[in-house]
């Protein structure tokens, strides 16, 4: 399990079926955009609300991480589209760890 230092997303780089997972940071949510507006990092058009803005355009993160390969042509092994702020290894997230017996795990908010 790793945590993206650009967006805070957590994921397993290798899936249960043995295939690699490539993370790309999500655009800002309405809550994140609202905070960015308050912080003065984003300026909305005159009279436009955050709820309107979020459906009219996409607000990508500065320094977003994108682990997808630039091309399927042979290139530098492991090359990705954008490093962003990198990732750090973390302990297995109890929210997504395998559960036996198989049933819906409880979901708790992450701080």
């Amino acid at each position: 399990m790793v945590e993206c230092q650009s967006c805070g997303g957590r994921y397993e780089p290798i899936q249960a079926d043995g295939m690699e997972y490539y993370h790309r940071c999500p655009p800002l949510s309405a809550a994140e955009l609202e905070q960015a507006v308050k912080d003065g990092r984003v300026e909305l058009p005159e009279g436009e609300t955050v709820d309107e803005a979020i459906v009219r355009r996409v607000y990508e993160r500065a320094n977003a991480r994108d682990e997808n390969r630039p091309s399927t042509a042979p290139r530098t092994p492991g090359e990705i589209k954008a490093e962003g702020a990198g990732v750090v290894e973390i302990d297995v997230d109890p929210l997504t760890a395998p559960v036996v017996p198989v049933e819906m795990p409880p979901i708790e908010k992450r701080g």
């Binding site: 805070g8 790309r24 997504t96 992450r110």
Partner: peptide
């Protein structure tokens, strides 16, 4: 299994290259 976003963030999954 997709990524778990940070609190208050949205889900985004990308089709790999």
């Amino acid at each position: 299994a997709g990524a778990t976003p940070g609190a208050g963030a949205e889900i985004s999954e990308t089709v790999p290259t």
